[in-house]
Design a protein around this nucleic acid. Structure first.
Length: 733
DNA sequence: TGTAGTATCTTTTTT
DNA sequence: AGATACTACA
């Protein structure tokens, strides 16, 4: 025992943390509250494992982002020998599984240069399949079909299972589409994000000897953010750990925010069922936030019924009260936040890098960007339209994908007429038909141009030329020398660059710059890493997320969605857009209590990111699709213990034309706790109503109750308005 | 086949 | 309001 006390790896850990670290063998569940040193426990545990002689290459650490894995490796490197830290397998489920699948691809009928399709690719495929099905698009839109397929995969439900379980015609059709989609992916030698998980599960299920190989390799498995794993991730974890049973999972049910993409909170409960001998540790001391922030977060999360009982506490100071600002519009809100940021900076206590702005949807970032730019304040936006999602970047990547995996039809479709080279819709349709009928890829079908009906002479010449160009480039690439130069030449010959040079607008120059950045990024990757190939590059970037890329240690204000904020911490946090319908977000579908609880956890995550100070804001009026919406403060505001809140009205009101909605329309800011559950009157969805100012309209949605009851009314004269029934004086027709 | 003009949709959250 | 997708023409 005393020997362990001396171990530097165990110093600076509290008793609970230390116990969790030295519990080496068997299944271990760590329930770790926000800010309780979860990452610290994981890193120290891995360092400890290495310290007691476990070979680092036998350790597998699964994290939620690549960045978290990278941070973990760096910290381990500083605790033990840096060389050892490099040999740990650490990464996201997706990237680690992709790595395994590359090595074992042939077992599943893939080759190791398979493409990884992103959501956009998947949607394009589904759109095309839907067209062939000739179904009315309003019921089966690509997004929802894609979502259903994705959720099914995460539950390990095959197309055959899906069709068998179908209970109506629509489901049956979706099942057919799912099947066609899956066959198509296999033909393209491509996997989508979900396949990386499902196929790993299939690989291990079908080939026990492969499973055993990886069981033996990963003697010790550690999983971060366990509350956000889904069914298939859980199943693979169970497969991998079933031999040695050394698995440590860390999670906090209060921070589970990915139910919508299949995360299953039951994984924690099932974990205890599968491993009855599980040892459970609880980390309940928070080192991050002030007492005030913690109390506020606690008062909110108490409104959730489903949760594991735990009490988070801190020795940190009381801290300052949370400030709540009521703003006129979203512009006003952005201006207020910028004003507060300037005050924080001039106060001398904080710098720009200490400050973060969290919002519910990416679209909200725009106003803040504008306001910050006007005041010359440096900022960085995480997420939104990331570099690798830009059209011109994706086009270049598609050119490269086609070189590596010529069966990649999505890449082919993307670039065959980009820039325009005279292969239009008609020609492409002929090609697509031929390749579908003969079950070969588009690129392969170029070998049989003379057999393809209806092709014009001109098209044939162009396509032949295209095919030769790709093949010659592939041959050059296979020689393995001067890869970066070959790629530059190839992209130059594609005509993309000269196309943008000819357009010569500001936008086109931006795009050119992005292409240049990408090419030099590739150049650097290939020259810095001796034995890395273009294939490695493509794989790496397809699984990179925006948060992995962005440097958060800079002196800039950080802006991101609440989802991206998970796992991070900042001295000062702004949570904006706290309005009913926006946060909690609702999509005007039947109310789901679980949805609301998830939104509340998201708010909890936001609050608990803050170390010292929290600002909350909402706008009374928010513009959306050109409409003016009258907003109601988020119910979450009313759930914060009132003694912890200071409420303000934003002073810098922007000028607005007076309407019949004068001051009394809006909630008095002292009224937040009067939210109650009384019945919302006689108004029903579909009712036609008349309003003294807006005239006749139809009720499309109702929500809230008591003083907060509100209706979304579509008026004939002015379109959709969100109105508070208390003030709106609507008359039913 | 490419373009100009028009209709329609957009805003969840991410690997 | 602005961007994208679709349709009718050159």
């Amino acid at each position: 025992m005393h020997k362990e006390e001396d171990n530097p790896i165990l110093k600076n850990l509290n008793p609970a943390q230390r116990e969790a670290v030295v519990a080496v063998e068997g299944p271990i569940l760590i329930i770790a509250g926000a800010g309780s040193g979860k990452t610290r426990v994981l890193t120290h545990k891995i360092a400890y494992l290495i310290d007691i002689g476990i070979p680092p290459q036998n350790i597998l650490a699964l994290t939620f982002t690549n960045k978290a894995a990278q941070v973990m490796k760096e910290r381990i490197a500083s605790l033990v020998n840096p060389e050892a830290s490099k040999r740990i397998w650490a990464g996201t489920f997706h990237s680690i599984f992709a790595r395994i699948l590359r090595l074992e691809a042939h077992y599943l009928g893939y080759t190791s240069n398979f493409s990884i399709y992103d959501t956009e690719d998947s949607l394009n495929i589904i759109k095309r399949i839907l067209q062939n099905y000739n179904v009315s698009n309003n019921k089966l839109n690509p997004d929802s079909v894609h979502h259903i397929i994705s959720i099914s995969k995460n539950k390990v439900l095959s197309p055959q299972d899906f069709i068998r379980n179908a209970s109506n015609q629509t489901e049956k059709i979706i099942g057919e589409i799912y099947k066609e989609y899956q066959d198509y992916l296999q033909q393209n030698n491509a996997m989508d994000f979900d396949d990386l998980l499902v196929n790993t599960f299939e690989l291990f299920s079908q080939f026990p000897e492969i499973l055993e190989k990886y069981q033996n390799r990963f003697n010790f498995i550690l999983v971060d953010e366990y509350q956000d794993t889904n069914r298939v991730q859980y199943l693979v974890l169970r497969q991998l750990s079933s031999k040695y049973r050394n698995i440590t999972v860390v999670g906090d049910d209060a921070q589970s925010i990915y139910r919508w993409r299949g995360a299953d909170i039951r994984n924690i409960l099932d974990f205890q069922k599968d491993f009855p001998d599980v040892k459970i540790f609880r980390l309940e001391q928070n080192y991050r936030s002030t007492k005030c922030i913690l109390a506020a977060a606690d008062s909110v999360i108490k409104f959730n019924k489903k949760q594991i009982e735990k009490k988070l506490w801190t020795e940190n100071p009381e801290g300052e009260l949370i400030e709540l600002y009521q703003c006129e519009t979203e512009k006003d809100e952005a201006n207020l936040v910028v004003k507060k940021i300037k005050e924080l900076i001039s106060g001398g206590e904080y710098s720009l890098g200490d400050i973060a702005i969290f919002y519910r949807t990416n679209a909200q970032s725009l106003e803040f960007e504008n306001a910050l730019r006007r005041e010359n304040i440096n900022y960085v936006v995480v997420g939104g339209l990331s570099f690798y999602k830009r059209k011109e970047v994706k086009d270049v990547l598609a050119y490269l994908r086609l070189l590596i995996n010529p069966d990649d039809n999505e890449a082919f479709v993307r670039i065959i007429n980009e820039p325009p080279r005279g292969i239009g819709k008609t020609t492409l349709t002929h090609l697509l038909n031929y390749s579908r009928e003969n079950r070969i890829s588009l690129f392969k079908s170029l070998e049989h141009l003379e057999n393809i009906p209806n092709l014009q002479k001109r098209s044939i010449t162009i396509l032949e030329e295209f095919r030769n160009w790709i093949i010659t480039t592939q041959e050059k690439l296979n020689e393995g020398i001067g890869t970066a130069e070959i790629i530059n030449e190839y992209i130059k010959n594609s005509g993309l660059i000269s196309m943008y040079e000819e357009i010569a607008t500001d936008d086109a120059f931006d795009r050119l710059e992005n292409i240049e950045t990408l090419l030099s990024d590739i150049y650097e990757f290939l020259t810095q890493n001796e034995n890395m190939t273009l294939n490695d590059y493509l794989q790496q970037i397809s699984l990179i997320s925006d948060i992995d890329e962005k440097n958060l240690s800079t002196e800039q204000v950080k802006m991101m969605t609440l989802h991206s904020a998970k796992g991070l911490e900042f001295p000062v946090v702004f949570i904006v857009g706290l309005e009913q319908g926006l946060f909690p977000l609702n999509r005007f579908r039947p109310k789901d209590l679980d949805d609301e609880e998830e939104e509340r956890r998201l708010f909890y995550v936001g609050l608990t990111r803050a170390m010292k100070k929290v600002f909350l804001t909402y706008a009374k009026i928010r513009h959306r699709f050109g409409d003016e919406l009258y907003q109601v403060p988020s119910k979450f505001i009313s759930e914060i213990d009132r003694s912890l809140l200071l409420t303000f009205e934003s002073e810098n009101k922007t000028f607005r034309r007076p309407t019949t909605y004068s001051k009394e329309t809006f909630v008095n800011s002292n009224n937040f706790n009067e939210f109650d559950q009384t019945e919302d009157g006689v108004l029903r969805i579909g009712d036609r109503v008349v309003h003294p100012f807006f005239g006749i309209g139809k009720v499309e949605h109702l929500e809230g109750s008591g003083n907060f009851a509100q209706a979304l009314v579509n008026f004939e004269s002015v379109g959709r308005k969100r109105l508070m029934l208390q003030y709106a004086k609507l008359k039913k027709l």
